[in-house]
Design a protein around this nucleic acid. Structure first.
Length: 104
DNA sequence: GGACTGACCAACC
DNA sequence: AGGTTGGCCAGTC
């Protein structure tokens, strides 16, 4: 099924190591500024080949409930910068697409 | 086939 | 500053 849902996987799969994106950002890249809910819903399927740990909340917090702490560890292992708050440093690790032109 | 929900976000009050 | 609401898509009831 080719859909927004599928595009989310494709986009997340393209996120380079040491970079993260917020749910809303992914949605916005795909042309759906408010489809963040659906992005999270796509993540609910948790594909093994999908580095969804790079997908965080808009404020840098890790989503995913029980696995959140595990993902934070994975991100640290990928050279992602974290703030003293325990959140991802979005200012330094926010991935603005491969071109960086679709957003902002 | 209609209504609800779901790992969110941002605007509004 | 914190709670409520609207909005997107797709899957389930």
């Amino acid at each position: 099924m080719n859909s927004f849902f599928q595009q989310v996987y494709d986009l997340v799969a393209q996120i380079p190591s040491g970079k993260v994106v917020s749910y809303g950002q992914v949605a916005q890249m795909l042309g759906h500024s408010r489809a963040a809910r659906q992005v999270g819903w796509a993540m609910r399927c948790c594909p093994e080949n999908l580095p969804w740990q790079r997908v965080v909340m808009a404020d840098g917090s890790i989503a995913g409930g029980d696995f959140a702490d595990m993902r934070r560890f994975l991100l640290q292992n990928e050279n992602v910068t974290f703030l003293p708050d325990g959140r991802v440093d979005m200012a330094a690790c926010r991935w603005s697409g491969d071109s960086g032109a679709d957003i902002e």
